[in-house]
Amino acid sequence: MLILIGMAVPATRVLIAMESTGNPDMQIKVTGYQWKWRYDYLDEGFGFFSSLAADSNEARQLRSGISPHTVPNYLLEVDEPLVVPVGKKIRFLTTASDVIHSWWVPALGWKRDAIPGFINSSWARIDEPGVYRGQCAELCGRDHAFMPIVLRAVEEQEYRDWVVQMQQKQQDSASEANQTFSLDELMARGEQVYTTNCSACHQAGGQGIPGAFPALAGSAIATGALQEHARKVLYGKAGTAMAAFGVQLSAAELAAVITYERNAWGNDQQLAEAAERMGQPADIAVQLAQGVP
């Protein structure tokens, strides 16, 4: 009994400290998606998605033949890490877009569930610059194991520079929407986007998983009308893991991935109309602006 009380007192003190999320220096909204994270810097007004790094993603496919030991930070590396300044009290607001996830960086000492429709708050102040890694901790479907978290803590000045860079990048991707790309450019970019966002379910060879996830190779959608195909990608399919990528990817990325899906795996041979082989960012932007037909 005394031992229990001896444990309860410090536990209570720590808990109260952990829950005092009152006065942060900055706020980051963390949104869980199936199966990646999005980080929004509320004070700076920009945000981005963070997905499993390409080399890990390739190695983790069933019977990929690539030894995980040869991949640096296997399953613990992302394409775009979260960057924060050291010495600042950061309030993390966690939420989710589809199902419940849980944001966990062990070095921070806590995890917090990301629940669709609700935001949770927790805080951290990181004193040591460095890279901190973590994973999703709440079962969120097929690729629950493949949505890591990488948090890079840097000095204030480096952080400032990074913010400027990120804001610039977002502007660039907005202007890309007006450019025209060649088929090769779209295919190359599309393959990357496909690997990061689509291959988990539809598989690298576009064959899907029978019964669970439809095939894209030779599918009616990917070889049918371009606009219909784009609609599916942009707005997803309610009640399934097929997300609305219109809100997740830029117009150029969307155009690239749609073009890739229509030309890879021999789909180009089956296209109803050869003219509909590729989409351009501008078309996608128009379709996005027009909305669901």
Partner: peptide
């Protein structure tokens, strides 16, 4: 062993 050798993640779940 690390890496997926035998089953799909969905089946594992």
């Amino acid at each position: 062993h690390p890496g997926l050798q035998y089953v799909e993640p969905q089946f594992f779940n």
